[in-house]
Design a protein around this nucleic acid. Structure first.
Length: 476
DNA sequence: ATGTGC
C-alpha cells in the first residue's frame, strides 16, 4: 500500500474542487477529484479517505474520474462520500462502493402544521412514535411477515408496502425509482440475510439513524419553496434509515463471494477491501440483484415508518393521514445503472437537474429534491439537483455531515447524559434509550453540515432551498 | 451501518 496523500499530490482545479492526477500512481486508470474547502482539507489529508478514493481509480472500466463529495470520510474499501461510475459492459461492481447499509436513505414529510401548533402535543406525539417505531439494535418490527411475504417486500419495495396498507400509491412517485428496483431477485438473497431482516421491517436501527421533527428556519429559494408548498416555521418529519440486518448480510455475503471470484477473474486490487467482480459476471449480477432486493427492503422500511408516523399524527393530533405528505425519498448508499454506466453512490445523493425524465412531472421544472440530513442537534437541508451535477458528478451531490471522530473516540470524549441535557435546553426533545448512542452521534463527531452544503451550493452541484432545525429526535 | 470486535 502507498504512503499517505499529501497536499503536494493534488491541485486545486476549481474554487472547491481538487484533483489527484492519474500520474500520481501507476495503477490509476482515471484521475480522482474531490470537492472540499481549505478548512476541510486540514483534516482530510490526515486520514485514509483520499487514499481510498485513489484506490477506486484503479478499478477496471472506471469512467472519466472517481469523485468524492465534501463530506468524504473513511469507509470500507471506498470512502463514504464517494461516487464511482464504471462502464456497464466492461466495468466492475463492488459491495464496498455501496456500503454495508444498502439503500440507507432519507425521506422528508410535510405536516402542514407550525411549531406553535405542535408544541402542546410534541412530547406526547414523539412518545407515541417512540413506542410504535422501534429504535435501537433489537427493536422488533410492527409488521408480522412470513419468509414468503418477505420476498414480496424484497421484490416490491415501497410499492408492495403501500399495497399492504402502509401508505398510498400517491407516495410512490415521490420516491427515487418509485421505491422499487425491478432488478431485485430474491433468490440471490441468502436465507441468513432474510432471517435477519424478517422482523426488522418498520424499524429505525441505531447509529446515525433517526426520526426527527424539524422546523423550517430559513428559505433560500422562495420560488422553489412555494412550489414545494413549504412555509417558514412549518414542522417536517425526517426519516433516516436503511436496510438493517438484511442489507448488512447481503453486503457481507457478496464480499465473501467476490473475494473468491476475484481469483477466477484475475482481478488485482491495491486494498483487499476493494472486493469486486465484473458487472456482467455471475457474481457481479448476483450482487446487483441482491443489492436491489435489499434496496427495496429499505424503501419498504421507510414507507412503513412513514405510515406509523402518519397514524401517530392522526391519533394524537387528529390530523388526517393525507396531510402528512411525502416530499421525497432519496437513497444515498446504492449502485444504479444509469445510461451506459453503473454508478456507485456511497454516502452520496442522486441530484438530477430540471428537465430530467427520471424525476416526477411536478418537480421536473425545479429539479430533483435532495435531502441532506445533519447530525443530531444540527441543521438539515432540503436542496435540489442541478444540470451541472448531471454534467460533472454523474448527477450526484453530498449526503450529510460526514464523520470526523470515530464512534470510539466520540464515546470517549462525550458524555451522553450531558449532551442529552444540552439538547433539551436548546428545545430539542430527545427520545432515546441509549446515552452511549447519543454520545457517538454528538455534533462534534461530525463535519459542519453548513459548510458541506455551502460547498455543494457554491460549486453548483445542488441548490439550497430550505434549512431545517430539529425540535425532536427519536433514535436508537 | 451491524444479532458491534479478536
Amino acid at each position: 500500500m502507498s504512503e499517505m496523500i499529501q497536499k503536494k499530490n493534488f491541485k486545486r482545479i476549481g474554487r472547491y474542487l481538487y484533483e489527484i492526477p492519474k500520474s500520481f500512481r501507476a495503477d490509476m486508470k482515471a484521475p480522482a477529484r474531490f470537492y472540499s474547502s481549505p478548512t476541510f482539507l486540514e483534516r482530510l489529508v490526515e486520514e485514509r479517505a483520499l487514499e481510498q478514493l485513489v484506490n477506486t481509480a484503479t478499478m477496471e472500466g472506471v469512467y472519466r474520474y472517481v469523485m468524492a463529495m465534501p463530506d468524504i470520510h473513511e469507509g470500507y474499501g471506498f470512502p463514504i462520500g464517494g461516487v464511482v461510475a464504471v462502464d456497464k459492459n466492461t466495468g466492475l461492481i463492488s459491495p464496498g462502493g455501496v456500503g454495508y447499509d444498502i439503500n440507507c436513505g432519507v425521506r422528508l414529510l410535510k405536516t402542514g402544521i407550525t411549531e406553535e401548533e405542535l408544541a402542546p402535543k410534541k412530547r406526547e406525539l414523539l412518545e407515541e412514535i417512540f413506542n410504535t417505531v422501534p429504535a435501537g439494535l433489537r427493536g422488533k418490527s410492527p409488521v408480522r411477515v412470513s419468509l414468503e411475504e418477505l420476498d414480496k417486500f424484497l421484490e416490491g419495495g415501497a410499492v408492495y408496502a403501500a399495497e399492504r396498507g402502509f401508505g398510498t400509491r400517491n407516495d410512490l412517485e415521490r420516491i427515487e425509482e418509485n421505491g422499487r428496483l425491478k432488478t431485485a431477485d430474491t433468490r440471490r438473497v441468502s436465507d441468513r440475510a432474510k432471517k435477519r431482516g424478517k422482523d426488522q421491517l418498520g424499524t429505525l436501527g441505531s447509529g446515525n439513524h433517526f426520526l426527527e421533527f424539524q422546523k423550517a428556519v430559513k428559505i433560500f429559494d422562495k420560488d422553489a419553496a412555494e412550489k414545494l408548498r413549504i412555509r417558514l416555521d412549518e414542522v417536517f418529519v425526517m426519516i433516516h434509515t436503511g436496510s438493517r440486518g438484511l442489507g448488512h448480510q447481503v453486503a457481507s455475503d457478496y464480499i465473501e463471494i467476490m473475494r473468491e471470484a476475484m481469483k477466477k477473474y484475475n482481478i488485482k486490487v491495491p486494498d483487499p477491501e476493494l472486493v469486486s467482480a465484473p458487472f456482467t459476471s455471475k457474481e457481479g449480477q448476483g450482487y446487483f440483484k441482491a443489492m436491489s432486493a435489499a434496496a427495496n427492503f429499505a424503501w419498504a422500511n421507510r414507507q412503513i415508518i412513514m405510515e406509523m408516523t402518519r397514524r401517530a399524527f392522526n391519533k394524537i393530533l387528529g390530523i388526517p393521514k393525507e396531510q402528512v405528505f411525502l416530499i421525497y425519498d432519496v437513497a444515498h448508499n446504492i449502485a444504479k445503472v444509469e445510461g451506459n454506466l453503473v454508478v456507485h453512490r456511497k454516502g452520496a445523493t442522486r441530484a438530477f437537474g430540471p428537465g430530467n425524465p427520471n424525476i416526477p412531472q411536478f418537480y421536473r421544472d425545479i429539479g430533483q429534491p435532495v435531502i441532506i440530513p445533519g447530525s443530531m442537534g444540527t441543521s438539515s437541508f432540503l436542496m435540489l439537483g442541478t444540470k451541472k451535477a448531471e454534467e460533472e458528478t454523474f448527477g450526484s451531490t453530498a449526503h450529510g455531515a460526514g464523520r470526523v471522530l470515530s464512534r470510539h473516540k466520540a464515546k470517549r470524549e462525550v458524555r451522553g447524559e450531558e449532551l442529552r441535557k444540552e439538547l433539551e435546553r436548546e428545545g430539542i426533545a430527545i427520545f432515546s434509550r441509549s446515552n452511549v448512542g447519543l454520545a457517538e452521534e454528538a455534533p462534534i463527531a461530525y463535519k459542519n453540515i453548513e459548510e458541506v452544503v455551502n460547498i455543494t451550493a457554491e460549486t453548483g452541484i445542488a441548490k439550497k432551498v430550505v434549512q431545517l432545525k430539529p425540535i425532536g429526535v427519536v433514535k436508537g
